Simulated scan of single mutants.
Amino acid sequence: MKIAAFNVENLFDRPKAFNLDDHAKGAAITDAVAEINVLINKDEYSAADKARMLVLIGELKLTSSNPPFVNYRKIRGAFWKKPRNGPMEIVANGRGDWVGWVELKTEPNNAVAVMNTGRVIKEVGADILAVIEAEDRVALMQFSEQVLKKLGGAPYDEIMLIDGNDQRGIDVGLMVTNGYSVGLMRSHIADMLPNGERVFSRDCPEYQVTTPSGETIWILPNHFKSKFGGNDQGSIDKRAAQALRTAEIYETLRAAGHDKVVVLGDLNDTPDAGPLQRLLAQTDLKEITDHPSFSPGQFNGIGTYSTGSKAHKIDYMLLSPALYARVTAAGLFRKGAWTASGRWDMFPELEKDIHAASDHHLIWVDISD
């Protein structure tokens, strides 16, 4: 049984802001969109809310006839007024006065990059694949049935994705094949923090997977809050809350007698980072990079992102003890990631950075029957 996790960074369409060379600028744009949508959805707008929305409208260039990175959707009512001789003002007093929102513009991914994503997935050949940053279930199905087929691979038999909390279209999904099947599913998009915010930036779904031999394995794909953005402390606190809740979900499964559990995906922080310790150090989960059979490939580093250095270890494969004891091999698949310094072999079709399947390296594990 081969299990893998891969952050594909969107399959077909990707927010334009994500493609900026200046990642901090892109993060600032996506954070501004998230913030203004939170303010827009308030029942009543305070003077401070209105002042902040005016700032964000300016930053996102919403009053432009063609904002560069976002679309402004207004369905009914008036949100703002821009007098000919005077400053712009927010005329709506709350959500009930108008219907509208702000969304990120998308653009098609580079066609070569899409095919290289398919090459990564085809060559690894995982029976159970957690996909991070997929647009939606339809995109996953089209990718499986069209891209994998064109490359000579077999489409996945079952594909599941529950739309999560992120309005940018970056969700976590699951694909299974070779006689594996998905049974019970449980979403945690509605788990709440004491301050009324949702815990998960995307979701921490629980998927019950049945193997061809009849075993039951629980798969928990994850994508924690990114480090990018202006409020770094807020991001740290958010990741800590997500690690805590994921640990609680895992422990609930274990208490119910389920001894075969996998927590995997992009946790957006390093193994020694404080926010992750509730999950990494205070449960009995075992990280696959610690297993004697783990091989990082040509480049001797455990990093799963960008250059592959230790500081770039942010993707994880965490196994319950019963599964960890059955590991026969594990590693990182890097051929779809760009390296300017030749740290690892790349697909021949990956001729420049824009052709990369992802900035992330696929992480995988083989488990004996």
Rank of each mutant, 00 (worst) to 15 (best):
S309R: 09
M88W: 01
P68K: 03
V176Q: 08
K150F: 03
K82C: 10
D269L: 09
V91F: 00
V120F: 13
S213P: 11
L20T: 04
R198A: 07
H258Q: 15
M346S: 05
D353E: 13
T270A: 03
T30W: 02
L319Y: 09
H291M: 02
S293V: 00
Y324M: 10
S187G: 00
I162E: 14
P108Q: 13
L323S: 02
G303W: 08
A256W: 09
M185K: 08
S181H: 14
A47P: 02
P271L: 13
R343F: 04
D290H: 01
I170R: 07
K310Q: 10
M88S: 08
A34L: 07
T216H: 10
S201C: 11
R343A: 08
K313H: 06
L332P: 10
M160Q: 05
P108F: 15
V38Q: 09
V131G: 14
L54D: 02
A134M: 01
G153P: 07
G86S: 08
R239V: 00
N178Q: 07
R84G: 14
Q142K: 06
K335Y: 04
K335V: 04
S293P: 01
Q277C: 03
K310C: 00
F228L: 15
V147E: 02
A78T: 03
G164W: 13
L56Y: 12
I302P: 08
V33S: 14
W80Q: 02
V262I: 13
G125R: 12
I363S: 08
M192R: 15
E135W: 14
N268H: 09
A130V: 15
N178R: 07
S213C: 06
M192V: 12
N71D: 14
K82D: 12
S64V: 00
A322H: 10
N41K: 12
E248T: 12
N37E: 06
N10F: 15
Q298E: 12
Q242S: 13
L104G: 10
F333W: 11
T216M: 03
S293C: 04
V38F: 01
Y156V: 03
E44F: 09
A322E: 07
G308A: 13
Y156Q: 00
A325R: 15
F6P: 08
L60F: 02
D315W: 13
D13E: 09
L174A: 11
N71Q: 11
D345N: 00
G153R: 12
D136V: 03
S213G: 11
N231E: 04
V33M: 12
V262R: 06
I170H: 04
R326Q: 05
V99P: 00
A113V: 14
A337N: 14
L253K: 13
G308K: 15
S187H: 05
Q242G: 09
V209R: 05
A139D: 02
